[in-house]
């Protein structure tokens, strides 16, 4: 990809065969900072890289390989496929996250995958706030052949979630995916609404929502750590999708998030089209950050 090529040039520029000293480590830390890993995580990676190698001669390729390895170590435990418990019918997936991070689009892509896998999917238009959010989800419903349960702009989102469950149950759907309005994690009132959606779903099935998926935008900087922290506390997020990795942002904050929260990362978003959702690969992601081809 283009970003890993740039990064490789970047590293090559600062690092041909030379001693692994303070200056070199600083240069490597800079590479990680530019990928949004954040200071603490960047230093942890460079420390790990330096241990046992400090003062020795090391080539650019070796450094990249080791850097990728160190990052992969953090990410490998969170790279997991999304598993559905189909003894729950429907298995409920609630999708949450900050405004514009890609919730609705990810739902469309995910529905396509599930339908392709032979499952029947119902979508719940739980974003009753944003203009044309319902119409947007309806188009994804048409594209993927999934019925959409919706109410009106301004209606109660928890009420919609409750109804959507009933409709999905009646229809015998395997999976119900519920969209929610984007919200910033520091808005107490909006976060309380999310809590209510979770509570209301529990009236139908005490284990619902079974999957609470949070979308994290790869262009977001250090604030993403806070986003995950609070959405997890309030809505019980138990899985992540990182979107918009088709740009030049590398999404390095995911390394910090993985280290801290250990939440599974199921997919990455790499575009706006229906098949632009890929499984998360720790090794590919780590290599892209370290600039290994």
């Amino acid at each position: 990809s283009r970003s890993s090529r740039e990064l490789r040039d970047n590293i090559a520029g600062v690092f041909t065969k030379r001693k692994l000293d303070e200056d070199t480590l600083q240069d490597l830390e800079d590479v990680l900072l530019r990928a949004d890993l954040g200071l603490e995580t960047a230093m942890r990676v460079t420390d790990a890289l330096a241990s046992g190698r400090y003062g020795k001669d090391i080539s650019g390729e070796e450094v990249q390989a080791v850097m990728a390895e160190e990052i992969e170590k953090v990410l490998a435990p969170v790279a997991m496929p999304l598993e559905l418990d189909l003894s729950h019918k429907p298995h409920v997936i609630l999708v949450v996250g900050v405004n514009g991070t890609g919730k609705t689009t990810t739902i469309g892509k995910l529905a396509a995958k599930l339908v392709e896998g032979g499952l029947s999917v119902t979508l719940g238009a739980g974003d009753t706030f944003r203009a044309a959010a319902i119409e947007q989800l309806r188009i994804w419903g048409e594209r993927t052949g999934s019925p959409v349960v919706s109410s009106k702009l301004g209606a109660d989102a928890a009420g919609l979630a409750f109804d959507a469950y009933e409709k999905a149950k009646e229809a015998g759907s395997d999976v119900l995916i519920i969209d929610t309005a984007g919200r910033l994690q520091n808005k107490a009132e909006l976060m309380a609404e999310l809590e209510k959606i979770v509570r209301v779903l529990g009236k139908h099935d005490p284990d619902a929502p079974h999957t609470v998926l949070q979308t994290v935008d790869a262009t977001t900087g250090q604030n993403a750590l806070n986003q995950v922290e609070i959405f997890r506390n309030v809505a019980g997020v138990n899985g992540l999708v990182m979107t918009k990795l088709d740009g030049t942002a590398r999404g390095g904050i995911l390394v910090s998030i993985a280290a801290k929260h250990k939440l599974p990362v199921y997919f990455i978003g790499v575009g706006e089209q229906v098949d632009d959702l890929e499984p998360f690969s720790a090794s590919d992601f780590a290599k892209a950050i370290a600039g290994v081809a």
Binding site: A35, D36, G100, D217, T219, T220, G221, Q222, A224, T248
Partner: peptide, 12 residues
């Protein structure tokens, strides 16, 4: 542009 943007802000 999103004020929450990270290091990519300069590129974009």
């Amino acid at each position: 542009a999103d004020s929450l943007t990270g290091q990519d802000a300069v590129n974009l």
